[in-house]
């Protein structure tokens, strides 16, 4: 926070401040408890968990469950660990996020700076697309993917996420670009810049905050998606979430809770990482344009 921001903070007395902090710390502990349980139990041998004491620290620290979850745990029929599925997810998420962000930016640019007859209807339809429940499109989408020959492939999954992602990314960029001065676009037109040059040279360099918001949002959603992953992937194109489910839900053998915990943390790490790296832009970007000046 910049120093001048403190000037706008409402002053509170020491007593009320004590109450506020106590409450905040209590809530913080409460929310962090599940993470504590997961981390602690992923670092102890299975026997300690079976003996009870989920909350206690490990007597014997071990990273074996992590190694097992990553490379040797039984997923479905083969003992491959989560590793190949982790890569499936990466290969799916990165292009899906990148393409939907770029297309969203282009859409927002067109909908605000190159307005045409019926543009609000198009935008309305795109927005509507955001709020269609996933379950509704499963069967039509499966049919579509079958027709174009993308069923059960990573490109097929990318396509599905792209279709769902564009609505939100367009919404973000449209609202952001609405605040962007149109005179700049006009000046660039007179200077001789074309449609894409204006986009690349004038619009994109000023789009940092909203691009970060869009990337975080899309990354989190697509990485965490289970329904599309479970519906439209084959065994060798399954994303991390589906593989994790298969790991945890396996009905044979002993339930290796410590391995499950390690796997679940692994599945959550990338979104956590993205948020930590870019999170401070997230709130800033979401609030951008809400206050003038």
């Amino acid at each position: 926070m910049s120093s001048n921001a403190t000037a706008t903070v409402v002053r509170t007395g020491a007593g009320s401040r004590f109450v506020i902090y106590t409450l905040l710390i209590l809530f913080c502990l409460y929310y962090l408890l599940p993470l504590y349980v997961m981390v602690v139990n992923s670092l102890k041998p299975l026997s300690e968990i079976q003996a009870g004491g989920m909350m206690s620290l490990p007597e014997e620290w071990t990273v074996a469950p992590w190694a097992s979850a990553w490379s040797t745990a039984q997923i479905g029929v083969e003992a491959t660990g989560l590793k190949p599925f982790f890569w499936n997810s990466i290969v799916m998420v990165v292009p899906a996020v990148a393409i939907s962000t770029v297309l969203g930016a282009l859409n927002g640019y067109v909908l605000t700076k190159w307005r045409f007859r019926g543009d609000t209807i198009i935008f309305g339809l795109l927005l509507f697309g955001c709020f269609i429940p996933f379950q509704m499109v499963l069967i039509p989408m499966a049919r579509m993917l079958g027709i174009v020959g993308l069923a059960g492939t990573v490109p097929g999954l990318i396509f599905v996420h792209l279709v769902y992602g564009i609505g939100f990314s367009t919404l973000y960029f449209r609202n952001y670009y609405q605040q962007f001065p149109t005179e700049l676009v006009r000046a660039a037109m007179i200077d001789g810049a074309g449609f894409f040059t204006i986009f690349r040279r004038i619009m994109l360099p000023s789009s940092g905050p909203i691009a970060v918001v869009c990337v975080i949002w899309q990354f989190t959603n697509i990485w965490n998606d289970f329904l599309f992953g479970a519906s439209f992937s084959d065994f060798d194109s399954q994303p991390m979430t589906v593989a994790l489910n298969n790991l945890v839900q396996s009905s044979t053998g002993v339930k290796e809770y410590n391995v499950h915990f390690a796997g679940a943390i692994m599945a959550a790490l990338p979104t956590l990482l993205v948020y930590i790296v870019a999170g401070r832009y997230f709130v800033r970007g979401l609030m951008a344009g809400s206050v003038k000046g």
């Binding site: 001065p181 700049l184 000046a187 007179i190 200077d191 001789g192 040279r201 004038i202 000023s206």
Partner: peptide, 30 residues
């Protein structure tokens, strides 16, 4: 005829300087 091909130049009320470019780049962008 497109604005770029009319051989005109315009000064806007808000100045419309490209915020991501420095003054020199702004001047020679056209």
């Amino acid at each position: 005829v497109r604005p770029a091909d009319r051989n005109i130049a315009m000064v806007f009320q808000s100045y419309a300087l490209y915020p991501n470019m420095n003054v020199g780049q702004n001047i020679v962008f056209g």
